[in-house]
Simulated assay, not measured.
Amino acid sequence: MTDTAAPTTDPIRLARDLLACPSVTPEEGGALAYLDDVLSAAGFEVHRMVFSEEGTPDVENLYARIGSGTPHLTFAGHTDVVPVGDAAHWSHDPFAGTIVDGVLFGRGAVDMKGGIAAFLAAALRFLERTGDSFAGSISFLITGDEEGPAVNGTRKLLDWCTARGEAFDAAIVGEPTNPQTLGDAIKIGRRGSLSATLTVTGTQGHAAYQHLADNPIPGIVRLVDALIGEPLDGGTEHFQPSNLEVTSIDVGNSAFNVIPARATARFNIRFNDTWTAEHLKAWLSEKLDAAAGNSIRYDLVFEPAVSDVFRTEATDLIRTLSDAIAEVTGRRPELSTNGGTSDARFIKDVCPVVEFGLVGQTMHQVDERVPTADLDRLSAIYERFLDGFFATANGNGR
Rank of each mutant, 00 (worst) to 15 (best):
T4M: 06
A5P: 01
T8C: 08
T8P: 09
P11D: 15
L18W: 10
A20R: 15
E27W: 00
E28V: 03
A31R: 01
D36Q: 12
A42V: 04
E45Q: 05
E45F: 00
E45K: 01
V46P: 02
V46S: 07
V50W: 01
G55K: 02
G55W: 01
V59E: 09
G67M: 05
G69Y: 13
G69T: 13
P71T: 12
L73F: 13
G77M: 02
A87C: 04
H89F: 07
H89K: 15
F95N: 11
I99D: 12
R107C: 12
G108F: 06
A109F: 03
V110H: 03
K113W: 01
I116G: 01
A117T: 04
A118V: 00
F119S: 11
A122L: 01
A123N: 06
L124Y: 05
L124D: 12
R125P: 08
T130M: 05
S133T: 14
S133Q: 11
S133R: 12
F134P: 06
F134K: 06
G136R: 03
F140L: 02
L141Y: 01
D145R: 01
E146P: 01
E146R: 09
G148K: 01
P149N: 03
T154W: 10
W160F: 14
C161M: 15
A163C: 02
V173N: 14
G174W: 08
G174D: 14
L182D: 14
I186F: 04
K187D: 03
G192L: 09
L194D: 13
L194W: 10
T197Y: 04
G205W: 08
H206V: 08
A207F: 03
Y209G: 00
H211D: 13
N215P: 09
G219W: 07
G219L: 05
R222Q: 13
L227H: 07
L232A: 13
L232V: 11
G234R: 11
E237C: 00
E237G: 08
H238W: 12
H238Y: 11
Q240F: 04
Q240I: 11
P241S: 10
N243E: 09
L244V: 06
N257F: 02
T264E: 14
R266D: 15
R266E: 15
T276A: 00
T276N: 00
A277E: 06
L280D: 12
K281V: 07
S285Y: 12
D289W: 03
F302Y: 15
E303L: 11
E303Q: 14
D308C: 02
D308H: 11
E313R: 07
L317T: 10
I318E: 08
I318L: 04
T320D: 14
S322R: 04
D323K: 06
E327W: 02
E327C: 00
G330H: 09
G330K: 10
R332Q: 14
E334S: 09
L335T: 08
N338E: 10
G339D: 12
S342H: 10
D343L: 11
A344Y: 13
A344D: 13
R345H: 15
I347S: 07
D349W: 08
V350C: 06
V354R: 06
F356G: 09
G357K: 05
L358P: 07
L358E: 09
A373T: 15
R377M: 12
F385Y: 13
D387L: 01
F389E: 09
G395S: 06
G397V: 07
R398A: 07
